[in-house]
């Protein structure tokens, strides 16, 4: 159970949007995290640096935000253990097969009115909601 935080959510969202726009304006690419990562796995040599620095920036982001507001740096995991491994497999396989995740389809794709991205986003929202519902029903999370 977490608190509804519409203001910080919107501010954070706008920053993510600025990141996506800057990515397109500067290097002409979609800010889709799963694609940036998977493209770097056994990728071509000249195609690596921009991916690595993006990921380094992504890692540095929480540090920067945490300097101003240390209380933001909290992460509690309602599920642990085997679920982490299973979820990693599903997210890794699903984003590879479906060519995108929350950022690529959910933000960049929908912002271009891509039919594929709209359908993908509705699909992963629906199965995500269903999964949490089932985990509550079967007492995996309480």
């Amino acid at each position: 159970m977490t608190e509804f935080t519409p203001l910080s959510a919107t501010i954070g969202g706008v920053l993510i949007g600025i990141s996506a726009v800057w990515m397109m304006a500067s290097v002409g690419r979609i800010a889709g995290i799963s694609g940036i990562i998977s493209g770097g796995i056994a990728g071509a040599k000249g195609d690596m640096a921009w991916r690595v620095t993006f990921i380094l920036g992504l890692l540095a982001g929480p540090f920067l935000a945490g300097l101003a507001r240390p209380e933001l740096l909290k992460a509690s995991f309602p599920t642990e253990g085997i679920y982490l491994i299973l979820a990693g497999i599903l997210v890794g396989w699903g984003t590879s097969l479906g060519s995108g995740c929350t950022s690529g389809h959910g933000v960049c794709g929908i912002a271009r009115f891509s039919a594929r991205s709209i359908i993908a986003t509705l699909t992963f929202m629906a199965t995500g909601i269903l999964t949490v519902f089932c985990m509550r029903y079967f007492g995996v999370i309480v």
Binding site: S34, I55, Y83, G88, G98
Partner: peptide, 28 residues
């Protein structure tokens, strides 16, 4: 597309992490 998104959603719901936040998470 639909199968991939469906599987991704199940994993996302199971732990509450998608690729971006999962990476950002690593730093703390």
């Amino acid at each position: 597309l639909i199968g991939g998104a469906a599987l991704f959603g199940i994993g996302w719901g199971m732990v509450g992490l998608c690729p971006g936040p999962a990476i950002a998470n690593l730093s703390f």
